[in-house]
Nucleic acid binder design. Structure first.
Lengths: 137, 137
DNA sequence: TCCTAACTTGGACTTTGTCCAAGTCAACAC
DNA sequence: GTGTTGACTTGGACAAAGTCCAAGTTAGGA
C-alpha cells in the first residue's frame, strides 16, 4: 500500500496524515469496510480525523480507480482496495460476510449485442448470494 | 397484478386499500421504483397513505418473493415486480436509467466449487454498467 | 352487526452521506 | 530555515433513506 501513496503523490496528491491513515486502514485483501468502519479504525490511530475527510478521501480513491465501491446490499457502501485484480463478490444472506471470488469466463461476454440496447457496456458486477458455513442450517 | 392480490390473500394477507394501491403502482414490466417513488405514486390515488405503510408493504412483498429488491447504486433500494422471470440489470452510469436484460447461460454456473468456500450459493445478481445512447459522447 | 387481531398512521429517531465556512498545513520557492 | 499559498481538514448543519412505536382504524370472520 505504500506504493499506493507514492503513486498518488505522483498524481499531485498532497500527502497528509489523514490520507495516509485511511490508506493504511484499507490495506490488505478481502477488506470490505463501510465508510464508518474506515472512520472508526482511522480514528484509533488519529483520533481527531473527521468523517468528512474519510468520505472525501474514499471518494478520491474511488475516482482515481484505486479503490472499488461496492453496493452489496441497500445499506452502506463498502470500499474494496483490491481494485487491480478483477473479482466478484460472494455475500452471506445470513450474516452479511463478504468474500472475493473469481468466476471463470468474462461475465460481460454473456450479454448478447441484442440485449445491450445501444448502451456502451463497460463492466459487469456479479454478486453471488447464499449462506456461509456458519449460517447454514 | 390482480392475480398477485388474490395470491396474497390466499397466503393470509389482509387486503387493504393501501396494499392494493402499492401493488397497482408496482404493476408492469421494466419498473424499478424507489420506495419514495412508490409512495409518491400511491399517494396520487390514496393521498393519506403513509411512508411507513409503503415500506412495510414493500418489505412484505420482498419477503414473499413477489418483488425483487435491487441495489444498483449505493443510494435508495429499488423494487422490481418482475420477480418471476429471471433477468439481470443494465444500468447507465450517466443518468441511472435501468433496463432488464437477459444474458445467456446461468451466471451461477461460472462459479467453480473451489470458489464457493463452503457457502450454499443460491443466486447470482449481475449488474452491467455502461452509457446509454442518450449519455454516450 | 360486533369483535379483535392485523393493519395504518404520524412523528420521532437512526444511519448514511453531503455541504460549507473557517482554520490548518504540505510542499514549493527562496 | 522561513514564508507563502492553495489544497486539505474540521465540525456542525443539513439531507436522504429507512426504522420503530404507541395510538387509532379496519377487514373479515363469528
Amino acid at each position: 500500500m505504500s506504493d499506493l501513496l507514492e503513486r498518488l503523490r505522483g498524481r499531485g496528491w498532497r500527502l497528509t496524515s489523514q490520507r495516509r491513515v485511511v490508506a493504511e486502514v484499507l490495506d490488505g485483501e478481502h477488506v470490505h469496510l463501510t465508510a464508518d468502519e474506515v472512520h472508526a479504525r482511522a480514528a484509533d490511530r488519529l483520533p481527531e480525523i473527521s468523517r468528512a475527510t474519510v468520505y472525501n478521501t474514499l471518494g478520491e480513491l474511488v475516482a482515481l480507480g484505486e479503490v472499488l465501491e461496492v453496493a452489496t446490499d441497500g445499506r452502506a457502501r463498502r470500499y474494496d482496495p483490491n481494485a487491480h485484480r478483477a473479482h466478484q463478490h460472494l455475500v452471506c444472506s445470513g450474516c452479511g460476510a463478504i468474500r472475493d471470488v473469481h468466476p471463470h469466463g468474462d461475465p460481460l461476454a454473456a450479454l448478447p449485442a441484442a440485449e445491450r440496447f445501444g448502451f456502451a457496456v463497460t463492466a459487469a458486477e456479479v454478486t453471488y448470494r447464499g449462506l456461509c458455513p456458519d449460517c447454514r442450517p
